[in-house]
């Protein structure tokens, strides 16, 4: 179905540094407002939740509505206090969850 999500963040950061994370996932984000050629409403199918955790602790999350564009792009920040792993998850209306992980190291 969906391609691998694209995530951009630095490989390493100084302790206490605030880094920027950019994410993009392929998804139609069907709003439920559109009609097909026969005039029937196309059912809603969107990613309704995005969450980002760092070493198991929540960093940022957002609840999404149909007013989010197709292929949702989300950019946010995170403060790095230790080396570790970011876990990203996108939850679809149908219950499927797209996940991804990225590691970050502390600058020596």
């Amino acid at each position: 179905m969906a391609d691998k999500p694209r995530i951009k963040l630095p490989k390493e950061a100084a302790k206490g540094e605030v880094i920027q994370i950019k994410t993009l996932v392929s998804h139609v984000m069907e709003s439920g407002q559109r009609k097909d050629a026969q005039g029937k409403a196309i059912p809603r199918k969107i990613i309704n939740k995005f969450a980002c955790e760092f070493n198991g602790k929540p960093v940022f999350s957002c609840a999404l509505e149909p007013a989010i564009s197709a292929n949702p792009y989300i950019q946010f920040d995170a403060r790095i206090d230790e080396a570790g792993t970011f876990k990203f998850s996108w939850t679809d209306d149908d219950g499927t969850v797209i996940t991804a992980e990225e590691k970050i190291a502390l600058k020596a």
Partner: peptide, 16 residues
């Protein structure tokens, strides 16, 4: 959208 930040976010900044 409803964005939820935590102290770990570092900055209350986002783009969508």
């Amino acid at each position: 959208a409803t964005l939820s930040f935590t102290p770990l976010s570092g900055k209350a900044e986002a783009s969508i």
